[in-house]
Simulated scan of single mutants.
Amino acid sequence: MKKLLAFVLLLPAAAFAQPGITEMQEARSDLTQSFFSARDLSLVVAAILGIIGALRIYHNLQMGRERFTAEVSAWFFSALFMVLLGAFLQAVFGI
Rank of each mutant, 00 (worst) to 15 (best):
L9H: 06
N60K: 11
V72T: 10
L9G: 07
A17W: 04
R56I: 04
V8C: 03
F93M: 10
A27L: 14
L84W: 07
S37W: 04
A6K: 11
L11I: 08
A47L: 05
G50A: 07
G86T: 01
Q18E: 15
F81T: 05
G64M: 02
L9P: 01
G50I: 00
F76Y: 04
Q90L: 05
F35T: 13
E26C: 02
A27I: 11
K3A: 11
R67T: 07
S73D: 03
I52L: 08
A27G: 09
Q18Y: 07
G50K: 07
L10Y: 02
N60P: 00
I52H: 01
R39D: 14
A13Q: 02
A13D: 01
L5E: 12
L61A: 15
A46I: 01
D30P: 02
V83I: 10
Q25Y: 07
F35N: 11
V45T: 04
S78I: 02
R65E: 14
K2C: 08
V92I: 15
Q33G: 12
L5P: 02
L4N: 08
E71W: 01
L49A: 08
K2L: 15
Q25W: 06
G86D: 00
F35I: 15
E26T: 08
M1R: 13
L55I: 10
S78W: 05
A79K: 00
A79T: 01
A15Q: 04
Q18T: 09
L5I: 15
Q90S: 12
L55S: 07
Q18D: 09
F93P: 00
L84Y: 04
R65M: 09
A13T: 07
Q33I: 03
I51C: 02
L61I: 06
G20F: 05
L43H: 10
G86Y: 03
K2A: 11
V45Y: 03
S29L: 15
Q18W: 07
L31G: 04
L55N: 09
I57A: 02
A15T: 05
A47I: 00
W75R: 02
L4G: 06
F88M: 13
A14G: 09
R28K: 12
I52E: 09
Q33L: 04
A87T: 12
M63E: 11
S42L: 04
V83M: 05
S42F: 09
Q18S: 07
R65Q: 10
Q25R: 13
R39E: 14
R39Y: 13
V72C: 05
M82P: 00
L9T: 13
L80H: 02
A14K: 02
